[in-house]
Design a protein around this nucleic acid. Structure first.
Length: 435
DNA sequence: GTTGAGCGTT
């Protein structure tokens, strides 16, 4: 018999009900499962209006005066700790917010964010100064790079630029460029950094009920923000995707359980599927700068596009944590293909409800019991494999991807602009930075 | 010392 208390990470947001233990305590691990990175709990004292801390002792959060009551508690996060790629990006752009709650910052995803832009077809002779003087017409530049051969110093014929303002980027992407006598193309690079910035508009809805219609989902989720698309695989596979226009809305919902038409669904981040097959479409479809719709990147694991033969039809098994691509789905199990597909998708997404393994810390599921981080919702009861979302991977890629920021050739250094970035030192002449 | 579709040494 569980009791629940209401917890939020933002007093403006809808709280999540969280189970407390038999001894009346809330486990920090339970809290962290819903609010990754949370290190404590607090609540507003109605008498003083101030925030009051909840006692934390050996991983247990103790109720104030032995009573949780109906108070809405607020998750507490370590100050100034970079836990997400998004936060790193935000730190870079908004250095004055360096001490805020990192998770709140994580949720502040700027839809209209600049990314590095690749400049293709540069004349061999063009220098970074040449690029700067050309691209300045579109707006303030933060960075210009010409990629060169290490030994000879000869240009490789391409480079990167980054604008300060998104409008400048849009203008620049909208046309071809005559630079030093050659036509050059400017595009969003096919690298993970830029992909990371465009994702998370779409959320994965696990544990869907067969009676749920796209309209049901749209109606329900519209109260959180504009819904661009609802996708329910046919035949029924017990999951769906909802795409919001605002990635912040999508991000805010991730990790939550919601009740729709009496059914508890789990919302998590939509995992991008492998990009190898889609990359061609991707780069081809971004030349107009338009990736505003949910299909813009074409690389999401929707389980659609005619790959109904999930056993190996689409070559999309590389990231399957349980190696299901290697199973013979036509073998002795004779499971309903819809259930297999749902199970596979649920595994990929970390939504375990379908398999009846939710919260099963001592379960007998395949590979269970070996994961030292079994308290996280995406790993419960399973062996040690990588989380599909793997934000840390993105973070490291991200920091590694902007190594050209540290230099201040003009002699003026702005340390604040470098806060939160992994690499700040670099040899001269690898990039030119005017800010 | 050459070249002309692509995708970023640290």
């Amino acid at each position: 018999m569980y009791q629940y208390i209401q917890v939020t990470d933002d007093e403006q947001d809808e709280p999540i009900e969280m189970p407390i233990e038999d001894d009346g305590c809330l486990l920090l691990s339970t809290l962290a499962a819903q609010f990754p990175g949370a290190c404590g709990l607090k609540y507003r004292n109605p008498e003083t209006g101030g925030m009051r801390a909840i006692r934390l002792c050996e991983g247990k959060l103790h109720p104030p005066d032995d009573m949780w009551g109906s108070t809405v508690y607020v998750a507490v996060f370590p100050k100034g700790v970079a836990t997400h790629v998004w936060m790193i990006v935000e730190n870079k752009r908004k250095g004055d917010e360096g001490l805020e709650n990192p998770m709140a910052k994580t949720k502040k995803i700027d839809r209209e964010k600049c990314s590095d832009l690749i400049v293709l077809g540069l004349p061999w002779k063009s220098s970074e100064e040449d690029l700067k003087s050309y691209f300045e017409q579109f707006g303030d530049l933060l960075m210009v790079q010409v990629k060169k051969d290490i030994k000879t110093g000869q240009s490789k014929g391409f480079g990167f630029v980054r604008f300060n303002d998104y409008e400048s980027q849009v203008k620049c992407l909208a046309q071809r460029h005559m630079i030093d006598g050659r036509w050059c193309d400017v595009r969003i690079p096919n690298s993970r950094e830029s992909e990371a910035q465009q994702m998370n508009r779409k959320v994965f809805i696990g544990r869907c009920h067969e009676d749920m219609t796209a309209d049901d989902l749209r109606n329900y989720f519209s109260k959180f923000g504009e819904v661009l698309d609802v996708f329910i695989p046919k035949p029924f596979r017990a999951f769906a995707f909802v795409t919001f226009s605002d990635p912040e809305v999508a991000q805010n919902l991730c990790g939550e359980d919601h009740i729709i038409a009496g059914t508890s669904v789990h919302i998590s981040t939509a995992a991008p599927k492998n990009y190898d097959k889609e990359r061609g479409k991707h780069s081809g479809s971004t030349t107009s700068g338009g990736y505003g719709q949910n299909q813009g990147f074409g690389g999401w694991n929707q389980g659609s596009k005619g790959n109904g033969a999930q056993g190996g039809g689409n070559g999309n098994m590389n990231n399957n944590p349980l190696g299901m691509g290697g199973l013979n789905l036509g073998g002795p199990f004779q499971l309903n293909p819809a259930m297999l597909a749902a199970a596979q998708a649920a595994l990929t997404q970390g939504g375990w409800g379908l398999l009846g393994m939710a919260n099963n810390q001592t379960g007998t599921g395949a590979g269970d019991g070996t994961n030292p981080q079994a308290n996280t919702p995406s790993n419960q009861g399973f062996g040690n494999f990588s989380s599909p979302a793997a934000p840390g991977t993105q973070a490291s890629n991200q920091t590694g991807g902007f190594l050209g920021w540290g230099g201040a050739p003009q002699g003026e250094s702005k340390p604040q602009q470098n806060a939160g970035w992994g690499q700040q030192q670099q040899p001269a002449n690898t990039a030119t930075n005017w800010n």
